[in-house]
Amino acid sequence: MEGMGYLAVAYFGMLMAIALWTYTVVRRSQRLEDRLAALESVSTPASSQEVQNDMSGEL
């Protein structure tokens, strides 16, 4: 493989690692939202408000 080939493979791998890392954060966030939706479907008004107050802060 030529030097440029090694360069491309290296950066591609690192970009994939960053993409995967970011994907795990996004997926965690989505699962959190799903679990919150499940909780809100049965929650009392007080706990719902507490959750909303917490979740309203952005990441």
């Binding site: 954060v25 965690r28 959190l32 679990r35 919150l36 909780l39 706990s47 507490e50 959750v51 990441l59």
Partner: peptide, 19 residues
């Protein structure tokens, strides 16, 4: 971002235990 998510997960877990 990760610390914030973990914080929210812990809060959610506490609320679920209360529920």
């Amino acid at each position: 971002a990760s610390m914030r998510l973990t914080d929210l997960e812990q809060k959610l877990e506490r609320l679920q235990s209360q529920t």
